[in-house]
Nucleic acid binder design. Structure first.
Length: 574
RNA sequence: GCGCCCGUAGCUCAGUUGGAUAGAGCAGCGGACUUCUAAUCCGCAGGCCGCAGGUUCGAAUCCUGCCGGGCGUGCCA
């Protein structure tokens, strides 16, 4: 439709289509039509005032089929579509698509998404949540648009932290039947003792304890050498941690195709090392081997002074492995903004090596999340994810029993509380652009009113409720509708907003910004809620009821699908 | 010092890539449940878009310079 209008305007104005296409915009509100053309450019060509140009064009343009009228409004020329035809096309399409609204045909292209990536033997707190939530949403959105998505959890499963857990076990004994809390406790206790030893502030009772740092380092050397006892201990830690992480991911509905962490690339490092060394780009500087990427990116150490591999070495290995294994068009890294330089350097080194993986890497930076509790005051305590989810659940259940008056029959209140609590948190994390620093606020994250996930869940539940009651009176949203009954301003506002869905989805993917979808769903839900009481279905004349029901169900399909893409559980009844 | 990012209502954030009157939510105040769910809706109040220049028909948006905050700058990741 857009291109038809461009053609018609270009013909009437005697200007190239490309120039008109660059000017024609989607209107902001239906009152300004469906499309709008600012006439300032024309004014220059015609040497007349913009309003005069708009008026002249309005009289002369040959309206394509489907466009009901065009009206000059000051310097703008507004195009109004035939509302009945547009409503029929759009609402009919959304109803037919069901849960597949906005779904793209398979593109035959793969995208790798790396996200979450927590460190083994360390607690999972709210600071880790942002990468998890953004990455999960991006994976789902891209999959919906027809990409084959491979999600990867690049676990921090290789490093000196195991040395501290090991030292803790040596000093205080290895707990039987250990769980994640035991690992974290041992780690914290051992690293605390190490700090005291370094500072010379060891408590008298601990004076006889061995040098923790030396034990940890010694352990890690044995682990890297592949010594069986060290390896077995590492696997023990890994199993306990993975059980814990997977139970957490299950609870959040987050899924990974692969858990290929740093250890996975440990074995492949030798091959990569010879490739890097063979590339001839390595220079020596201050005893280390690296690549000089110029004044901005600096000298990047690829091998440390003692020859061991570094962070970037393993990321080179990972990028190469993923490119070879999956041949993706993109590799997305949902990693915090502080690591921007690292990823620029990674791309820089791969470019210098002439590797095709360089052009596929996309770093998706997100702003800082302190991960600090502000709830009880100025404590320095990190909020554990489990505690947050538990509290969300409890508050949602409490709110349901105290605030919600009318409740549908046969609702599983525990499942509902879980979905609402999780939805509130996920949506809170996705309702602002990636790059903004995130000030985690307990009360905002667990608020269920206003601009929140539960607000949208509630809108969907109300639509379902209407549909269920309407069905009992013999109405069927799939039964067709008289689209001319949706041409009024109040109903067409919803049609107008429904039309934006597809573009929003594509933009969210293209910009790697899930919040665009989140904000859109909020606006759509708000539009619906504002009309909930004025556009009644039950008790209306059947053709009117049928048309409104169809419109609401189309909105419901978009809300349900959109929430799912964000990882917010769509709640059908609440 | 250099580099990147952020600065919009008391607070948390939008603002469709330069277009029509800068919008939401929270907090505050006032209204609405014998009718499809009040986790809702309606109204009121709240603004030097950090500051100063520039670009142009038009700037919260682009350019320059300041101010304030965050992060990074061959330890590790």
């Amino acid at each position: 439709m857009r291109t038809e209008i461009v053609k018609a305007v270009a013909a009437a104005a005697g200007l190239p289509e490309a120039e008109i296409a660059g000017q024609l915009t989607d209107s902001r509100e239906p009152g300004h039509g469906d499309f709008a053309l600012p006439c300032f450019i024309l004014a220059r060509a015609w040497k007349q005032s913009p309003p005069a140009c708009a008026a002249k064009l309005a009289a002369e343009v040959a309206l394509p089929a489907g466009v009901a009228r065009c009206v000059a409004s000051g310097p703008y020329l507004n195009f109004f579509l035939d509302r009945a035809a547009e409503s029929l096309r759009l609402v009919g399409g959304l109803l037919a698509a069901g849960d597949g609204v906005g779904r793209g045909a398979p593109r035959g292209e793969r995208i790798v998404v790396e996200y979450s990536s927590p460190n083994i033997a360390k607690p999972f707190h709210v600071g880790h949540l942002r990468t998890t939530v953004i990455g999960h949403a991006l994976a789902r959105i891209h999959r919906h648009l027809g990409y084959e998505v491979i999600s990867i959890n690049h676990l921090g499963d290789w490093g000196t932290q195991f040395g501290f857990v090991w030292a803790g076990c040596e000093i205080w004994g290895k707990p039987a039947d250990a769980r994640i809390g035991d690992l974290v406790g041992l780690y914290q206790r051992a690293s605390g003792l190490r700090k005291d030893q370094d500072a010379g502030t060891v408590a008298p009772g601990d004076a006889d304890k061995p040098d923790v740092n030396a034990m940890a380092r010694d352990y890690f050397i044995r682990l890297e050498a592949g010594e069986p006892e060290a390896r077995a201990f590492w696997e023990w830690c890994l199993d306990i941690s993975l059980d814990y992480f997977k139970s957490m991911y299950d609870r959040m509905g987050v899924h990974f195709d692969h858990y290929t962490g740093e250890s996975f690339f440990q074995d492949r490092l030798a091959g990569v090392e010879s490739m890097i060394r063979g590339s001839g780009i390595l220079e020596e500087s201050r005893g280390a081997l690296g690549v000089d990427l110029g004044p901005r990116l600096g000298f990047v150490r690829v091998f440390a002074e003692d020859g061991r591999s570094l962070y970037i070495t393993r990321d080179i290995a990972a990028a190469e492995y993923r490119t070879e294994t999956y041949d993706p068009v993109r590799i997305l890294y949902v990693v915090g903004a502080p690591q921007q330089l690292h990823f620029q350097q990674l791309v820089g080194v791969l470019e210098r090596m002439g590797r095709p993986s360089a052009s596929r890497i996309v770093h998706i930076p997100y702003g800082h999340v302190p991960g600090i509790s502000t709830r009880g005051g100025a404590t320095d305590e990190k909020v554990l994810l489990n505690d947050l989810l538990d509290d969300a659940h409890a508050r949602a259940r409490e709110a349901y029993s105290s605030q919600v008056v009318k409740k549908p029959q046969d609702v599983d209140e525990e499942a509902l509380a879980e979905a609402v609590g999780l939805g509130a948190i996920f949506f809170d994390y996705l309702s602002r652009s990636n790059i903004k620093d995130f000030h985690f606020n307990w009360d905002d994250a667990l608020n269920f009113q206003g601009d929140t996930g539960p607000y949208i869940q509630y809108a969907l539940a109300r639509i379902n409720s209407i549909a269920a009651k309407a069905a009992a009176t013999g109405l069927d949203p799939a039964g067709g509708f008289d689209a001319s009954l949706l041409a009024g301003d109040d109903t067409y506002q919803l049609v107008f907003q429904l039309r934006r869905f597809e573009g929003i989805l594509q933009k969210a993917a293209a910009e790697y910004e899930p919040y665009l979808l989140a904000n859109y769903l909020l606006e759509l839900a708000r539009s619906f809620s504002a009309r909930y009481s004025s556009l009644r279905v039950l008790g209306e004349e059947p053709t009117v009821a049928q048309a409104r029901l169809s419109l609401f169900c189309a909105v419901g399909n978009v809300l349900r699908t959109g929430l799912g893409l964000l990882g917010v559980p769509p709640v059908e009844r609440m």
